[in-house]
Design a protein around this nucleic acid. Structure first.
Length: 341
DNA sequence: GTTTGGCAATCATAAAACCT
DNA sequence: AGGTTTTATGATTGCCAAAC
């Protein structure tokens, strides 16, 4: 998010949790794609929402250079871009091949300057000096959206930057307002993702992790495999029911992908590759950390360690959890949770 | 007035790369 | 070691309205 007051860039922040992010103003100022001063008549206050990206060509060139210089390579453009913005020294950021696309407006004062539609807003942002993705388009009806999805999907490999899908938005702000929000998610916009890259690997073990509330979560230990730019070695299996649904066993060859191109996920078992003498996986009867019994409440699918705060894993997670909250919150929530445990 | 069902919202949990 | 980015899945909680 970029904040302009009377046409001048005064602050840039990461998205964070939606209300609190990091101040990366000094780093954002080094991006040529981000105007320090707005063109034409500027609102008193304007917050521009956008995305910092690292184009493929820049990423490749950066890594070629780093390789020649014997320096560390970036693993993928996405994390490379995120890391570039968190640099303490803006001069480092300045040397990273970063680009920027504006995709919306947050605060605007006076509000009367806001155009009536999203598409008109993006046009206006162009006139103010912001880059806007050239692939945007307006479409009508379900068929129009799917046609757009297919068109962008066909062009995907030829785009100068990586994308994981398209976003549909209602164009008229009055319509957006009528639909409103569910929690923080708008009802007037939805992402339509392209199928994620899938890879095959071997599930070498299933470990059980104990969380703060005692929940026993099975985790797949996988033979390392490159998926969508990273090395995947672990993936959650969520619970015993999920393992049963997948019928996944230790030793199985499995298909993995990165859900949302981020979170590793076991999709399915390659049945014809199952080695002989495998056995269905069973949840252990006792906590692997403290040895207390694992119990499951009626109707629930989660098994929990009955050790409470005498279990080292639960103590550890409880301390980490409450340490990351503000002191104020600990008073209200801490007691309740500790009693529960 | 209490219970129940349905829906929405939130919590809990998992992982990888990069940076400090 | 911990914070930052990204998100799927299921469990739990909370609320409202309908049924009893």
């Amino acid at each position: 998010s970029l904040r302009y007051e009377h046409g001048l860039l005064v602050q840039g922040a990461t998205r964070g949790d939606g209300s609190v992010g990091e101040d990366v103003t000094a780093n954002l100022r080094t991006l040529r794609a981000i105007p320090l001063r707005l063109r034409g008549d500027a609102p008193d206050v304007l917050e521009v929402r956008g995305e910092v990206i690292m184009p493929r060509a820049g990423f490749d060139a950066f890594n070629a250079r780093a390789l020649a210089a014997g320096e560390k390579l970036l693993a993928n453009p996405r994390n490379g871009a995120a890391g570039s913005l968190r640099q303490l020294d803006p001069r480092v950021t300045a040397r990273r091949p970063l680009a920027f696309f504006a995709y919306g407006i947050g605060v605007i004062e006076p509000a009367s300057l806001l155009p009536p539609t999203h598409s008109a807003t993006l046009q206006w942002l162009r006139t103010l000096g912001f880059p806007v993705a050239p692939e945007i388009a307006t479409a009508q009806g379900f068929a129009g959206l799917i046609a757009y999805y297919r068109r962008i999907g066909a062009a995907r490999d030829h785009l100068p930057y990586g994308i994981d899908g398209v976003v549909y938005k209602l164009d008229r702000y009055v319509d957006q307002q009528a639909l409103g929000y569910v929690a923080r998610a708008p009802r007037w916009a939805i992402a339509h993702k392209f199928p994620a890259e899938e890879q095959m690997t071997v599930l070498e073990a299933i470990d059980v992790q104990i969380g703060r509330t005692g929940a026993a979560t099975p985790v797949a230990r996988l033979a390392p495999v490159q998926v969508a730019g990273v090395t995947v070695t672990n993936a959650t299996l969520h619970n015993a029911d999920q393992i049963e649904r997948l019928d996944v066993r230790v030793g199985d060859t499995v298909i993995v992908r990165r859900a949302g191109d981020v979170i590793p996920e076991v999709v399915r078992v390659v049945a014809e590759r199952r080695p002989p003498h495998t056995r269905p996986w069973r949840m252990p009867t006792h906590c692997p950390v403290c040895g207390a019994q694992l119990l499951r409440e009626k109707g629930a699918s989660a098994w929990r360690c009955s050790g409470g705060l005498s279990c080292a894993a639960q103590r550890r997670e409880a301390i980490l959890h409450f340490a990351s909250r503000r002191a104020m919150d600990i008073d209200g929530l801490g007691e309740r949770y500790i009693e529960d445990l």
